[in-house]
Nucleic acid binder design. Structure first.
Length: 632
DNA sequence: GGCATAATGAAGTCGCTC
DNA sequence: GAGCGACTTCATTATGCC
């Protein structure tokens, strides 16, 4: 069977010639800073969504004096970009930020004039209740009886030991087990004001359970009166919150966070005073198993996504878990406040790979691709068992990196061990030296006193790629190590993506950013999810060739389009692709970790680094896709 | 110039002890 | 809670060889 038969000229498009790349005004020069880059991005996105949709008009808008800082400010406050664009357009080029906020508020009021039922649904979804339960409660009590719905939902939550919040607790890794228990953040009956009336008490109690402080709840009841329903009280509090955010944005940098996460707000009041850092620190879970492992108890199958994160397309973002402080807070803030799912791939294969994943995928009905991977070193590499010394207790390898141990290192290990060949085992200090080096450089035993680094095909095996996936095709050995060290662990990613299979039985359109050697595509292929379209962006030519070869060798029937530089994938180009192919179902990618990874001794500077700042390009492109799909 | 090789810490987390 | 040590880490760069 000829691979070309299924992946001929009609199925593969290389858009990397200069003639095909249109660089618009927002991407023609590298951004001077990530902040600037994001602000420019937002201007571009917003204008694309507004009535001023052409590139020329986009440029004109900036030249007319619209401040990209205002965009960034309002975006950080949680307003949708198209709403910001519309408000700025209406308020005029010289409008103050406060005037634009007032305009946005007017839109919100207009929206409220719409369907009362959808309003009710949105109202309770925003509070973190499960959509199914909300719909059921509205059906039972009628959309006009907001208070009864709220009470029904709260009663339901209580009866189920507050599943919504408990589930959130399970996925909130900002807390360690010994810091605070869930019971600590609930207001008990004993803490109620004994002097308040029953009506007031119930309303305050309900508001407290929704995440507002007791003081806020009391003030709301005092200001709105005793006879208003719970919906009106929450609207009052949200409005006050919005106003306070705007004020705080210009006064106290520590309080600039969006406050729609009720759970987080409660925790802030109980935890230590915040540091000077911008965000609540994201802590790594222990064990690092995300929402749970296949075939293991304790699986979490439900979570409540922030409202902004809902809706198509699905997106899946990945990066190193052990990033410098504050990085994951920033990433989360730019990806709709979704908390990362931290997973160590040592639970999926024989090598560690600690990564954070931010996605809006469902998490129920995940399944593992078959055959399951080998979980220990000796299972994965049986020939090492013969030479593995008893005093080397490792059963898992550390993270596969982009470089390997040297020949000189393995020789030093041999020289350290040989003098003790006749002894039952080498002295402890020798053992210590050898084990340290084996851990540091991920060495395996391939002969007597012979420790060796992994071969590229062994790495492919551990990472879930087909044998020889990175071999040949112009790929040097050094490049293989580098690309494999930077890739996904396929079994882990496939487990997360498996939920897409029943959702898209006819296949999906994929926008793959920072594709690398195609870990996401391999995962989808192994899940037997048809890829109708893959638009791939990858800077490395040899990596692009690897994906192209994979596409041909696996007889894919869809269309593969490859771009080289994510910064050259303009908003207009994305729009054009979506118009032609009908949109994207999945935006997947892990932006460069060079400036985040612990192994970088030179430029581990965080998201401001030359490479890692491309994360903001992921945000830009994702927002363009989302905006387009919201319109259609 | 391309490739392979080898040397180059520090940041952060975790567990333990006091 | 503070202090300490153990442990891990999608890397960068200089150098030499062909």
């Amino acid at each position: 069977m000829k691979a070309q038969d299924s992946a001929g000229d009609d199925d593969y498009v290389d858009w990397n010639t200069d003639d095909d790349l249109e660089i618009d005004n927002f991407q023609s020069s590298p951004p001077s800073s990530p902040v600037q880059s994001r602000a420019e991005t937002l201007v571009g996105v917003a204008v694309t969504n507004s009535s001023l949709s052409s590139p020329t008009e986009t440029t004109d808008l900036v030249q007319m004096g619209f401040s990209d800082e205002i965009f960034a400010t309002l975006f950080d406050m949680g307003f949708p970009v198209e709403m910001i664009a519309k408000a700025i357009e209406e308020a005029g080029p010289n409008a103050e930020t406060s005037v634009i906020i007032d305009t946005i508020s007017k839109y919100s009021s207009d929206c409220e004039a719409g369907s009362s039922k959808s309003k009710a649904i949105d109202h309770f979804l925003a509070m973190g209740f499960d959509e199914e339960k909300v719909i059921k409660a509205i059906h039972e009590h009628g959309e006009e009886n907001m208070e009864q719905i709220a009470n029904a939902l709260l009663s339901c939550a209580e009866a189920e030991k507050l599943p919504v919040e408990e589930e959130e607790d399970d996925i909130d890794w900002s807390l360690s087990d010994d810091e605070i228990s869930y019971s600590d953040i609930l207001i008990s009956d004993d803490e109620k004001d004994p002097n308040s009336s029953n009506e007031n008490g119930n309303q305050i109690r309900s508001l407290v359970r929704m995440g507002f402080s007791e003081l806020e709840a009391s003030l709301a009841v005092e200001r709105c009166g005793e006879n208003v329903d719970i919906a009106e009280l929450t609207d009052f509090l949200c409005a006050a919150q919005m106003a306070r955010e705007f004020s705080e944005f210009h006064t106290d940098p520590e309080e600039q966070k969006p406050r729609h996460d009720f759970k987080k707000r409660r925790l802030e009041s109980k935890k230590e005073p915040r540091s000077s850092a911008d965000d609540e620190p994201v802590r790594l879970p222990n064990p690092m198993i995300g929402f749970g492992l296949p075939n293991e108890p304790g699986l979490i199958t439900h979570r409540t996504l922030p409202e902004l994160a809902r809706g198509p397309p699905f997106f899946y973002y990945e990066n190193v878990a052990l990033a410098p402080k504050g990085v994951w807070e920033t990433i989360s803030r730019h990806l709709y406040e979704i908390l990362p799912e931290f997973v160590d791939s040592k639970y999926f294969c024989a090598a560690a790979r600690k990564r954070g994943y931010i996605h809006n995928l469902p998490i129920n009905n995940r399944f593992q691709i078959q055959p399951p991977p080998k979980y220990t070193i000796t299972e994965a590499f049986p020939l090492t068992k013969k030479w593995w010394p008893d005093w080397d207790k490792r059963t898992k390898l550390n993270c596969i990196l982009t470089v390997t141990g040297s020949a000189q290192l393995t020789n030093r290990i041999r020289l350290a061990l040989e003098p003790h060949s006749g002894e039952p085992e080498p002295p402890k200090h020798v053992q210590r030296y050898v084990i340290d080096q084996c851990r540091r450089w991920n060495l395996v035993w391939v002969g007597k006193n012979k420790a060796a680094p992994l071969e590229p095909d062994e790495m492919e095996n551990l990472l879930g790629f087909p044998k020889n996936h990175t071999r040949g095709g112009g790929m040097s050995r050094t490049e293989r190590y580098k690309s494999l060290g930077n890739s996904f662990q396929v079994d882990t990613v496939a487990y997360h993506l498996s939920v897409l299979k029943p959702i898209f039985p006819d296949g999906i359109n994929v926008l793959s950013l920072f594709t690398g050697i195609g870990g996401g595509e391999v995962a989808l292929h192994r899940l037997q999810i048809r890829m109708k379209l893959v638009v791939s962006v990858e800077i490395s030519k040899v990596n692009r060739n690897i994906l192209k070869d994979f596409w041909e060798q696996t007889n894919q029937t869809g269309v593969l389009i490859e771009f080289s530089d994510v910064q050259n994938l303009t908003n207009d180009t994305i729009e054009g692709l979506m118009k032609k192919y009908g949109g994207f179902d999945l935006v997947i990618g892990g932006s460069p970790c060079n400036n985040l990874a612990g192994g970088n001794r030179v430029s581990r500077v965080g998201l401001g680094g030359d490479q890692s700042s491309l994360f903001f390009e992921y945000c830009r492109i994702l927002e363009v896709v989302r905006a387009r799909m919201r319109r259609s």
